[in-house]
C-alpha cells in the first residue's frame, strides 16, 4: 500500500498534466459538439425531409465507425495535408466528428419527448415560433436532455483514452510511458483507471439525479 501511495504522489504532477490534456480534449470536443449537435437538431426539425435524411446518414456513419478509426483518419489526414496539425488538434477533430452525432441524437430524442399538445396550444394562441421555441421548447428539451447528455459525456471522457493511440499525452499514454520506463504495469493502469473512475462515478451520479429530476416534472 505504501508503494502505491508513493507511486501516486510521484506520478501526480505528470498525471496532473495528463488529466489536464484529457480534460482539454473532452471540454473542447464537448462544447463544439454540443453546438454543432444542437444546430443539426434545428436543421433536422426545420429543414426539408431530404436534408434530415442526410443528417441521419451522417449520424449513423459517425456513430458506427469505431472512434479509433476516426482518430487514425484525422491523424493521417493532418500529416498528409502538408501543414502538420498537432495530435491534440487531430484528436479534437475526430472527437467532434463523432460526438456531434451523439449529442444530436440526444437533442433530437429530447425534442420528441416534449409533449405535442403544447405545440398545438401555442398555435391556437397565435404565439410566434421564436418565442415559443426559446420560452417553452428549449427549456424542456434541456431538462429532458440533461441526464442523457451527462451520460454521453462520461462515454466521451472514457473515449479520450483512445487518443493515446495517436500519441496525445493523456492519461493512458502517460500510464504506458511509466510502464515502458519500468513502473509496475498493473499499478499504473490501476491509477489511470482510478482517475477515470473517480470523475465518471461523480458524473454518473449527476446523470442519475438529472434524469430523476426530468422524470419528476
Amino acid at each position: 500500500m505504501s508503494t502505491f501511495m508513493t507511486a501516486v504522489s510521484d506520478g501526480f504532477p505528470v498525471f496532473g498534466q495528463a488529466l489536464l490534456n484529457a480534460f482539454i480534449l473532452l471540454a473542447t470536443s464537448c462544447v463544439l459538439s454540443t453546438i454543432l449537435g444542437a444546430l443539426l437538431c434545428v436543421v433536422d426539425i426545420c429543414a426539408h425531409r431530404s436534408v434530415g435524411l442526410l443528417v441521419r446518414i451522417y449520424s449513423w456513419l459517425a456513430q458506427t465507425t469505431p472512434p479509433l478509426i476516426l482518430l487514425f483518419l484525422a491523424f493521417y489526414g493532418s500529416t498528409m495535408m502538408g501543414r502538420a496539425i498537432s495530435p491534440m488538434t487531430a484528436a479534437i477533430i475526430a472527437f467532434v466528428f463523432f460526438a456531434t452525432a451523439y449529442y444530436f441524437e440526444i437533442f433530437r430524442a429530447s425534442y420528441e419527448g416534449v409533449p405535442r399538445g403544447q405545440f398545438e396550444a401555442a398555435r391556437a394562441l397565435g404565439i410566434p415560433p421564436l418565442p415559443f421555441a426559446t420560452g417553452v421548447v428549449v427549456p424542456q428539451v434541456i431538462r429532458i436532455a440533461a441526464g442523457p447528455f451527462v451520460g454521453r459525456t462520461t462515454v466521451l471522457f472514457k473515449e479520450t483514452s483512445l487518443a493515446s493511440a495517436i500519441s496525445v499525452s493523456e492519461i493512458m499514454s502517460t500510464a504506458s510511458a511509466y510502464i515502458y520506463s519500468g513502473a509496475s504495469p498493473l499499478l499504473m493502469v490501476a491509477i489511470a483507471g482510478g482517475i477515470y473512475a473517480v470523475i465518471n462515478i461523480a458524473l454518473i451520479a449527476l446523470e442519475k439525479q438529472l434524469t430523476r429530476k426530468a422524470a419528476a416534472a
Binding site: 462520461t154 472514457k158 483512445l162 498493473l186 489511470a192 483507471g193 473512475a197 454518473i204
Partner: peptide, 13 residues
C-alpha cells in the same frame, strides 16, 4: 464502477 472505466483500461488490467 465498470461503466466509469474505459474499455482500454479494463483490457490493460
Amino acid at each position: 464502477l465498470m461503466r466509469s472505466i474505459p474499455t482500454l483500461v479494463i483490457l490493460f488490467l
